[in-house]
Nucleic acid binder design. Structure first.
Length: 206
DNA sequence: GTTGCGGGGTGTGCAATTGG
DNA sequence: CCAATTGCACACCCCGCAAC
């Protein structure tokens, strides 16, 4: 199976960010992006997935420092001070609510999030050494199952998204090959070759 | 066939801007 | 104030095309 390589512009398009953002993230997060013979970055599907996750974490309000920890797996538990103030205050508000009582009309996901917020807040109040034990005793089987389910669901969504991305790229490559082939045929016939143009591609992704 | 030119894409580096 | 983002300048390389 041939490894798919995306140039920085392709990767930027796929991820809906500017190319200099990718370079910036690469630098700040100390990511190792492979280079080709020309010294140009190329991105594998693995890299794309990694950047997609980074982008999601950014959207969720995490700072690059926190994301860096996650990426390098040095400290999977992210302290609140590494979240934006907006995210922290939101979490605090939710925690305050759950302290009083839980709204019976709340969705399962909301209840789960509130539960997690409370657990994490309590755990942070203890020292870092106690944190792991504290969480593991409070997070019961039910929460773990919920977490696994949510994680699996999310992974499936991501897989589906990248399947679509891959399909779009393959269609484009196929089209380009066909155009080149047509061009060659025209050349052999003696036609004057026109400049190869890419058809504007409709976005198959949203 | 070779050469020169221009366009497009990429690189780095730094400064400016933005927003919490 | 600082982290994050954006913009700009300049250099390099590749490729297509026209002229010779």
């Amino acid at each position: 199976m041939e490894e798919v390589r995306y140039m920085i512009s392709d990767a930027a398009n796929l991820l809906h960010v500017e190319s200099h953002v990718l370079r910036y993230w690469e630098e700040e997060l100390e990511l190792e992006i492979p280079r080709n013979e020309m010294g140009h970055r190329y991105y594998t599907e693995e890299n794309i997935i990694q950047f997609e996750k980074i982008r999601k974490l950014k959207e969720e309000g995490y700072q690059l420092k926190a994301i860096k920890m996650l990426v390098h797996n040095t400290n999977p538990q992210i302290p609140d001070e590494l979240k934006t103030t907006e995210v922290v205050s939101k979490a605090q508000t939710e925690t305050a609510c759950v302290q009083t009582k839980t709204d019976p009309g709340m969705s399962k996901l909301d209840q789960f999030q509130l539960l997690m917020t409370r657990i994490v807040r309590d755990a942070i109040a203890e020292n870092n050494h106690e944190l792991g034990r504290e969480v593991s005793t409070q997070v019961g089987d039910k929460v773990i199952k919920e977490m696994n389910y949510l994680m699996r669901e999310r992974e499936e969504q991501e897989e589906e998204r990248f399947r679509k991305l891959d399909e779009a790229i393959r269609i484009r490559q196929k089209r380009m090959r066909r155009q080149k082939k047509e061009k060659k045929v025209k050349c052999r016939r003696g036609d004057k070759p026109g400049k190869l143009r890419l058809e504007p591609q409709e976005s198959t992704l949203s």
